[in-house]
Amino acid sequence: MHSILILFAHPALERSRVNVRLAAAARDLPGVTFHDLYQRYPDFDIDVAREQELLESHDIVVMQHPFYWYSTPALIKEWEDLVLQHGWAYGSGGTALAGKTMLNALTAGAPEEAYCRVGRNRYTVRELLAPLEQTALLCGMDYLPPFIVHATHTLDASDIDRHAADYRRVLEGLRDGVLDRDAVKDAVRLNADLDVALPATEEG
């Protein structure tokens, strides 16, 4: 059993439709620490020592957030800048995160087709997340393909429920160590076909 730290970042959760449901699905999972960054640090005054302790005491780090300008909300960037210290997360003696796993779980307004060479956004989400992937790698972490909910503006309630259930399954699979990392290694997104990544469940 692995412990999961969800770094949740949404600057206006009160207006969220999808992230709020994903958060609700993840929040009460056993083995998951749900860490609401904008709630904890509304003025960006990040408690670095505490954040480092949290990272040290968990095996898997999930950044859950809306996809803003092909990246994370600003607080996650500030968090990276301050928390991932040289000599702690990377550089000589910086091995605090080595061997841990990192995953981005994000929601994007545009449909999946927009994120490809011929699409409006020209790059896949995975490509656009290169800075985060590289950050993880520099810290000696294993980086998983992102969990993405696309086209959020067109989803109805049942679609959102389905994505929330998927998210919960992924988190449970990660926690229980049953997610097949090799099978999804090159996937554009982790939830493209969950039956490949995870053992079958009763509801299929």
Partner: peptide
């Protein structure tokens, strides 16, 4: 000393 904002400091990087 390591301070909460030490990551914005580049001295340790300069050292290394």
């Amino acid at each position: 000393k390591p301070s909460p904002d030490a990551a914005w400091d580049t001295n340790s990087m300069l050292d290394e």
